[in-house]
Design a protein around this nucleic acid. Structure first.
Length: 283
DNA sequence: GTCCAGGATCGGA
DNA sequence: TCCGATCATGGA
């Protein structure tokens, strides 16, 4: 880790870099020596935080404004959103307290879609391992990657075109299991241009859902995650086994949130609450 | 050995 | 439309 990396310092309330980057919406960040380290949008950076004071190493003002400001969703008032969602479902209050610093990341659409295809019926450490291997083998070197302590983190996420060339057997060697076939299908479809990410960006959410779900290996949960974390559709509400359990027990009123403007953020609050109180939700 | 993981697909009711 | 079986893999 180099202290010669250029950096940008910002103030941000209601934000925790660590909580946000370990909240299960992304799989490529690692905490190292008090910093969150990772690559997105082709650039390797390290994020250090003291209270409301956030320093991003490996960026300059231009990249900060064009990339990281949006990636971390710094311009949104999460205090206000917390107020709105707890008004819709008061039992969310405690969860919103746990997750007070969690933002919804604006990740790259392809990386998000691909990552959540791998995530199905899988656990987070294994998902991270598989994605790391994909990046190591088929990613490009990120700008600033020479500062990374880990070679996997120094690589960009592979393009759909790159993964479309990889054999299904190779994906199995990386531990993808039966998801290897899905990964091949999705990569080839996207590389072929079967779906247009530029159009998806502006398409009505329901149409975007249908288009994503037309891909083999993309069901309701994966499509919802891609839209929430990769396309900034904050109304999207991914339901996995944990969220389903929570909606059936502690947050029975949570279904009221579905379809509301910030449902996805409320969902993230619930996910964070479960993550910190697993004993309440284990089978 | 069994159970589980940020699920999707398929076939049959 | 809905339900259950099945799908690899590795860690607990």
């Amino acid at each position: 880790m180099s202290e010669k990396m250029p950096s940008v310092e910002v103030e941000c309330r209601n934000f925790s870099a660590k909580d946000t980057l370990t909240s299960g919406q992304c799989f490529r960040w690692t905490e190292r020596e008090g910093r969150m380290c990772g690559t997105a949008f082709g650039r390797y950076v390290e994020v250090e935080q003291n209270g409301n004071h956030v320093t991003i190493f490996g960026t300059d003002e231009k990249d900060y404004n064009e990339i990281w400001r949006k990636y971390f969703d710094f311009d949104r008032d999460y205090g206000e959103i917390k107020r709105i969602v707890t008004e819709l479902e008061p039992r969310l209050y405690e969860a919103a307290e746990y997750a007070a610093g969690v933002h919804i990341l604006a990740q790259e659409p392809w990386e998000t879609l691909c990552s959540f295809v791998i995530s199905q019926n899988n656990n987070i450490p294994r998902i991270r391992g598989i994605i790391r291997k994909l990046c190591l083998n088929y990613g490009e070197r990120a700008i600033g990657g020479e500062n990374a302590a880990d070679e996997g983190e120094a690589k960009t996420f592979p393009t759909a075109e790159a993964l479309a060339e990889v054999s299904e057997e190779k994906f199995k060697e990386f531990g993808c299991g039966y998801r290897a076939a899905y990964l091949t299908a999705v990569s080839q479809s996207v590389a072929r241009g079967d779906i247009d990410f530029e159009y998806l960006r502006s398409a009505p959410t329901d149409e975007a859902r249908k288009m994503l779900r037309s891909l083999k290996g993309v069901g309701p949960k994966v499509a919802e995650c891609a839209l929430l974390y990769g396309f900034g559709r904050l109304e999207c509400f991914p339901v996995d086994v944990w969220i389903r359990r929570a909606l059936e027990t502690e947050f029975t009123g949570g279904t009221e949130l579905i379809g509301s403007e910030f449902a996805g953020i409320a969902q993230q609050y619930i996910f964070e609450y479960i993550r910190r109180n697993p004993e309440k939700f284990s089978k």
